[in-house]
Computed example of a mutant assay.
Amino acid sequence: MKTLKTITMLFVTALLGATVPALAQTKDPSVFHGAEATKAHYKAAYQLDSEEPDKIKGTLRNIQNALDDPRLKGKLDLELVVHGPGVAAFRKDSGYEEMVKKLQDRGVTLSMCENTMRERKISKDELFPFLSYVPSGNGELIIRGQEGWTIIHP
């Protein structure tokens, strides 16, 4: 009897597993336009810990895309938390100053990890003059995450 019950449960589970995705796929894709931004406010912290130009450009572009999303207009608090090799994005000689400054002008907080600066012997004079500083990038992300911020690591 126990075996019959087990087999029946497996059959029902398999049947539901095959049916539910099929039902989801019958929705008209031309009607779906993404999630609705039903909250009054959204908070996200972007983590940048890479010196790879494609990663830096991609992260900055992702932030720009979030700012330009019509669903999120006027509803965003964004922070870019840079640590480790990501410091390359904030160096005066990096070529990213214009992109980074535009993000700040749109309200993005630009946070540089002081631990990284100390470990790599980097002075504030080597970095953009308009940055904010946090004791540790990881600490900032931990605190933000516990405050309900979405942590994005492109």
Score class of each variant (00 low, 15 high):
79 E>R: 13
79 E>K: 11
106 R>C: 05
106 R>V: 06
83 H>D: 06
67 L>D: 01
74 G>H: 03
87 V>C: 10
105 D>K: 15
83 H>M: 11
100 V>E: 01
75 K>L: 00
61 R>Q: 13
105 D>R: 15
67 L>C: 02
78 L>V: 03
90 F>P: 02
89 A>L: 03
83 H>E: 04
78 L>W: 00
72 L>V: 07
78 L>H: 02
90 F>M: 15
69 D>K: 06
76 L>D: 00
69 D>I: 05
62 N>T: 06
86 G>F: 00
96 Y>K: 04
67 L>A: 03
84 G>F: 07
95 G>W: 03
73 K>D: 13
67 L>E: 01
101 K>A: 13
86 G>C: 01
73 K>F: 08
88 A>N: 08
84 G>D: 14
90 F>T: 11
87 V>Q: 11
94 S>N: 03
103 L>E: 00
94 S>G: 05
97 E>T: 10
86 G>M: 00
92 K>E: 14
83 H>G: 05
81 V>E: 06
84 G>H: 12
102 K>N: 12
78 L>C: 03
70 P>M: 09
72 L>W: 05
62 N>E: 10
68 D>S: 15
85 P>A: 13
91 R>G: 08
105 D>E: 15
98 E>N: 10
72 L>A: 09
94 S>R: 03
61 R>I: 10
68 D>V: 10
70 P>F: 11
102 K>R: 13
80 L>G: 00
79 E>H: 09
71 R>I: 04
105 D>F: 07
84 G>T: 10
62 N>F: 07
76 L>I: 01
65 N>K: 11
104 Q>C: 01
101 K>E: 12
72 L>F: 14
86 G>I: 01
95 G>H: 04
84 G>A: 15
74 G>M: 04
76 L>K: 00
78 L>S: 03
80 L>T: 01
96 Y>C: 03
67 L>M: 07
87 V>P: 07
79 E>W: 09
62 N>I: 04
64 Q>A: 13
71 R>H: 10
95 G>T: 04
62 N>S: 13
72 L>K: 04
71 R>S: 09
95 G>K: 05
71 R>M: 06
96 Y>L: 06
106 R>T: 05
67 L>Q: 06
99 M>L: 14
80 L>C: 03
100 V>Y: 05
78 L>R: 00
83 H>N: 13
88 A>Y: 04
61 R>L: 15
102 K>P: 09
66 A>N: 14
82 V>Q: 05
